[in-house]
Design a protein around this nucleic acid. Structure first.
Lengths: 218, 218
DNA sequence: CGATAGATTGAGAGTTTTCAACCGATGTGG
DNA sequence: CCACATCGGTTGAAAACTCTCAATCTATCG
């Protein structure tokens, strides 16, 4: 179990640009459930999240969805494909009504070539996303659902406290079915580790939650 | 099931450097099973694989190992932590006797700052590794063992044809136990999709193998 | 207040692991 | 070059875990 609490890495791209560059960028509004781009599309630019929450989702051949990453306010997405010169490997969907700022590839390329430190910034983000992805893989391969759900809860609620997470989203993030998430949350509530408020979830002590996850991993 | 056959991405870093830079680099020899660096260590440089195979392994709290990535001849490793300024999130171990060229962080930093296109190259590698990691996560979450083992076999044997893969390594790469890999390989052999030669595995037709995986995913 | 999306619960099924025993290949020292 | 030690592979039976399917309940919102 990775006990690190470093969930709030600085991922902002827009703050790296100067006013001149930002001025003529367009804001896009998307509604909950709306798709921004599809898995397989060719990239056209990078998106900065002004407000709301965007999910990066991949579809397995059998139709199952997996929630790979989530982008909240001041995060950006679409950079992976742009950098690697590949089609998008996953779909982005608004988890709630959101506002985005679109940075066309041409602008992005200009900026990146003119300012190596911005490229370095993007590379750092990729490196951290890679760490997180591989840690998620390790947990999925070695931990039981309960432990994974606790991990997911802690991460998700810390980094994106404003988003109202559904059981389905939590499950798709950590590799569990909605019903399983429901059952586990029920047990965690009985143990006093979480509190349900309507459909919402409150975590009184994230440390205690982690202790529980540690026990589960022997 | 991702049917793409693009397993041979160009990951070489050394070829990006000029002779002057390469000249004073040191070659390191490591024996099978030897550890190059540990999860949690602070990074000191990047390693280029001259020959042999290096595994990036992460240990779960219960001791289970997961094989995250493999680096064969002309690949490099250790770059993720160097770029993100983090301690190594996993351990590297020689899967067989290998020779490495060590590029100290100072050299790496100089090169990266002097030549933005090398930084871009590293960023591209990170972006592709991220795609692969997230696809592995999706498969682990949504596919059955047989399908995952086929995927792993196809990838592993295509990209690293020279390495003698053990059941344990295959399992740790795709999230399966050694015994399960053994059972699945037995079935695949009966179906004529693979051939066992001693402890080795030969794949007569990678396409047929993929067809089998497709069926499994409905 | 009714409609709807989301959450819960139970019983049964299925997949993969676990544990344990045994087999076979590989390679090394005498 | 053989004998044997060791590492890796195979197989079976039972257990564990998570999922599936189906029914029911309850927030939330127009």
């Amino acid at each position: 179990m990775n006990m690190s609490f470093e969930f709030s890495e600085k991922y902002d791209l827009l703050s790296q640009l100067d006013d001149e560059q930002i001025k003529h960028l367009v804001t896009v509004k998307v509604k909950k459930g709306e798709i921004i781009y599809h898995q397989g599309d060719a990239p056209t630019g990078v998106y900065h999240v002004k407000n709301g929450h965007i999910g990066l989702i991949t579809f397995a051949p059998n139709g199952n969805e997996t929630l790979l990453r989530v982008f909240g306010p001041n995060y950006f997405f679409g950079h992976r494909s742009l950098i690697s010169n590949e089609d998008y490997h996953a779909t982005t969907m608004a988890l709630v009504d959101s506002e985005l700022i679109f940075i066309p590839s041409s602008d992005f390329d200009n900026i990146v070539h003119a300012k190596p430190n911005i490229l370095m910034h993007v590379a750092q983000v990729l490196a951290k996303e890679l760490r997180r992805a591989e840690n998620k893989f390790r947990d999925l391969a070695n931990s039981n659902v309960t432990s994974r759900i606790i991990q997911a809860l802690a991460f998700i609620k810390t980094r994106y406290p404003d988003h109202k997470w559904t059981r389905k989203e939590i499950g798709e993030y950590c590799g569990a079915k909605t019903e399983t998430v429901s059952r586990v949350l029920g047990r965690l509530e009985k143990e006093g580790l979480i509190v349900k408020e309507g459909r919402g979830i409150v975590i009184p002590s994230i440390e205690k939650l982690y202790e529980r996850a540690e026990e589960l991993d022997e």
